[in-house]
């Protein structure tokens, strides 16, 4: 687990939108200068509310969205400058699992064709027999049966469709899987099945995951390390245990206290945040969270906080942890 598999430096992704005046342009800063590293065999969870840029960040890492600036190094290979053709070979190492299992499978392709497609595109099997054996093997790996191969996506339930999506991602034997809200469209009992499957496959194939989700308990369950995003930036990154037991950033604290706990006897001191997440088109100056922060200070309004290391593997972007300001 010592090798760095993914290294992202100052990644930015801006979407241009038409400005107020004709001919002008404004930018939605979906991802605004994010850096992180992921070790081989690790599960890195990204959490945040809708609109914080977590999905965009996941898609940018495998260049499904073209980053505006920044560097992405994957398995020692700098892929930031790659064009679509060059990316094709990289996609043998990175695969994605999407949120909506109803929209991410082609309804006119049989399950066999869906799972065989990556094998054919990357020329991973030589004969028809080999392809067939491989597809059936993958189906069994994700908990489906051989006879499912000739059916079409509409014949499956949500959980089963997500399994097909997972089999498709596994077909090329990737090193990294980016899972964008893979269980949020599923019922809780099915969600648990899929989470267990992802865990089991990780151990079996020595996979690394980037796990993007809005559900804090799910992310805690599956991840080794977690990054909390707010308006295009990380506000806190740390080891799962340290981050959940000892959240440092006021936003992380509020987020954790807002999660309903399935225990009616648990009395909590809830931090209820006022208002909504501001628009990414016109984010607040200084620390982007200062408009909703219960601990807002003068300097937060003007100056963006630096990264402060609080303990080994636990970082926070907040002025409260600056020694100078504290004293």
């Amino acid at each position: 687990m010592e090798n760095v598999l993914v290294k992202v430096e100052d990644l930015k992704l801006y979407y241009p939108v038409a400005g107020k005046r004709i001919g002008t342009k404004e930018y939605v800063k979906a991802v605004d200068g994010v850096s992180f590293e992921i070790m081989e065999g690790e599960v890195f969870g990204i959490v945040g509310e809708s609109g914080c840029g977590k999905s965009t960040l996941g898609r940018a890492v495998c260049k499904l969205e073209k980053p505006t600036a920044g560097k992405i190094v994957l398995d020692g290979e700098d892929i930031s400058g790659y064009n679509d053709k060059q990316m094709r070979s990289v996609r043998k190492k990175v695969q994605m699992i999407f949120q909506d299992p109803y929209a991410s499978l082609n309804p006119r392709m049989s399950v066999f064709d869906i799972i065989a497609e990556p094998l054919v595109i990357h020329k991973l099997t030589k004969t028809k027999e080999e392809t067939e054996a491989r597809v059936l093997d993958l189906l069994r790996k994700v908990g489906l049966d051989d006879y499912h191969a000739n059916r079409y996506p509409h014949e499956f339930s949500g959980g089963q469709r997500q399994r097909i999506g997972i089999a498709r991602a596994l077909a090329v034997e990737p090193k990294l899987i980016i899972a964008d809200e893979p269980v949020s469209a599923l019922d809780v009992s099915i969600q648990a099945q899929v989470l267990n499957l992802l865990n089991q496959l990780k151990n079996e194939f020595n996979l690394t995951y980037i796990f993007v989700a809005h559900d804090l308990s799910v992310v805690e369950h599956i991840s080794d390390r977690v990054g909390v995003m707010y308006l295009g930036n990380f506000v806190e990154v740390g080891d799962k245990k340290s981050l959940y037991a000892n959240p440092l950033h006021p936003y992380t604290k509020a987020l954790l206290s807002a999660v309903p706990v399935p225990d009616p006897t648990a009395k909590k001191d809830r931090v209820i945040l006022e208002g909504n997440i501001p628009s990414a088109l016109n984010p607040p100056t200084g620390c982007k969270f200062h408009t909703r922060c219960p601990n807002c200070m003068e300097c937060c309004k003007t100056e963006a906080p630096k990264r402060y290391q609080v303990s080994e593997n636990h970082y926070v972007y907040c002025h409260l942890y600056d020694d100078k300001i504290k004293s």
Binding site: S157, V188, I190, A192, L195, N196, S217, E220, H221
Partner: peptide, 21 residues
């Protein structure tokens, strides 16, 4: 149902599962 939701602050390798659909 209660077993299949991951709970905050609880370490578990595997979630309890209701098999099937």
């Amino acid at each position: 149902l209660l077993g299949s939701i991951p709970k905050l602050g609880e370490e578990a390798d595997e979630l309890e599962v209701i098999p099937g659909n």
